[in-house]
């Protein structure tokens, strides 16, 4: 099983779960399983055409999937997918 790490701002849509185990063979399948289990997460990760939104980066291991084979990137057992959103806090 591969693992998806859910970033803090999106955990309110996963019942506060910080990780998600997936059997998906590609990033697309893995994200598909994730949003299937947590439907409220969908519109925050995917746009109307089911593409990953531009304010979210998705990584396999330490690499941006845009530098690999994008959403078709293969995912092996024990690999980690990171969803990385922009966060803005600092001063307030």
């Amino acid at each position: 099983m591969a693992k998806i790490i859910i970033p803090t701002p999106l955990r309110k849509f996963t019942g506060n779960a910080s990780t998600f185990e997936t059997k998906g063979n590609t990033v697309k399948e893995a994200i598909g399983e994730l949003v299937h289990s947590h439907p409220n997460l969908s519109r925050h990760i995917l746009d109307d055409q089911n593409n990953i939104r531009s304010f979210i980066r998705v990584y396999l291991g330490e690499n941006d999937i845009n530098e690999l084979e994008k959403e078709e990137t293969s995912v092996l057992d024990n690999e980690t997918i990171s969803i990385v959103p922009a966060i803005a806090g600092g001063i307030a």
């Binding site: 701002p9 925050h44 531009s54 304010f55 979210i56 980066r57 959103p85 922009a86 966060i87 803005a88 806090g89 600092g90 001063i91 307030a92």
Partner: peptide, 16 residues
């Protein structure tokens, strides 16, 4: 390069 666009308002709350 990392975040071409900001998230829509309200998705990511500020620290307050």
């Amino acid at each position: 390069d990392m975040f071409p666009e900001p998230p829509p308002p309200g998705l990511v709350p500020n620290c307050a």
